[in-house]
Design a protein around this nucleic acid. Structure first.
Ligand code: ZN
Ligand code: ZN
Ligand code: ZN
Ligand code: ZN
Lengths: 121, 121
DNA sequence: CCTGAAAATGACAATCATTTTCATTTCAGA
DNA sequence: TCTGAAATGAAAATGATTGTCATTTTCAGG
């Protein structure tokens, strides 16, 4: 965990939700931090692989990031405005286990995401 | 529904699942069709807005497309050798519906994939 | 304090999917 | 046949993301 990653975490805390790398870069610039765009990207990559931030995609394909809670969860994402809800996924956990057992797979993990249009849109 | 859109639908039928615009373009070229990449993109845009084709995003942000109404299934993928098994996902369908209803989302779809290590590896 | 190796940084260039431009071709209808 | 709107596609532009590489910072051992 280096200096840049700390700065990125701090700005993500201020944002309190999803933001793109470019947006985070702008925010850091405006708040007087000296940090390059490349470094913002690198810090985000590192934080994602350490599971400290979540990465998703806007409808246009741009990556967006936010601090992630530590509990395992899944996402319900609005296709229009990008707002997300963290949802309960015990059904998926059971499904994963059942399918893995049925086909003899070990060390299984899964990805699951629901997308649709939210009540506000 | 013009000539290009028909060609794109035909190749999507042959593919039988998700494919990117670039992949569809390659396939059309190889099968001797004369069609430009720009036109493939335009046809896909039009088909998406007519709800004939579903659009979503790969993990890297590239857009992928499939015909609506394809028989829907999920994949169990080996992390080592890449072999895949198509698996049944009615549990996921129910989960999707329940979560969407609970949060007031409309027009929902989902992605779900299990990865692990297969019996041969 | 030094000192040098390793890690971090950031300006800049490269990549690549997607969109825009614009000149040309098609083609339905008068 | 004539005409204009729609379709087409090559080429250029766009924009997020990644790669490169020279420079700077960090820091453990002497
Ligand atoms: Zn999360
Ligand atoms: Zn919404
Ligand atoms: Zn395997
Ligand atoms: Zn399903």
């Amino acid at each position: 965990m280096n200096k840049s990653e700390i700065k990125v975490i701090a700005v993500l805390e201020r944002v309190g939700g999803f933001a793109s790398a470019q947006e985070l870069y702008q925010l850091l610039q405006r708040s007087g931090e000296s940090i390059g765009l490349t470094t913002v990207y690198r810090a985000l990559q590192s934080l994602v692989s350490d599971k400290i931030v979540d990465q998703l995609r806007r409808e246009d394909g741009e990556a967006i990031y936010r601090l992630c809670g530590d509990t395992h969860h899944h996402h319900l994402v609005c296709k229009q405005c990008g707002s997300t809800v963290e949802i309960e996924g015990s059904a998926i956990e059971r499904w994963t286990k059942a399918m893995a057992e049925e086909h003899g797979f070990r060390e299984v993990g899964h990805t699951a995401e629901i997308f649709g249009i939210c009540p506000n849109c």
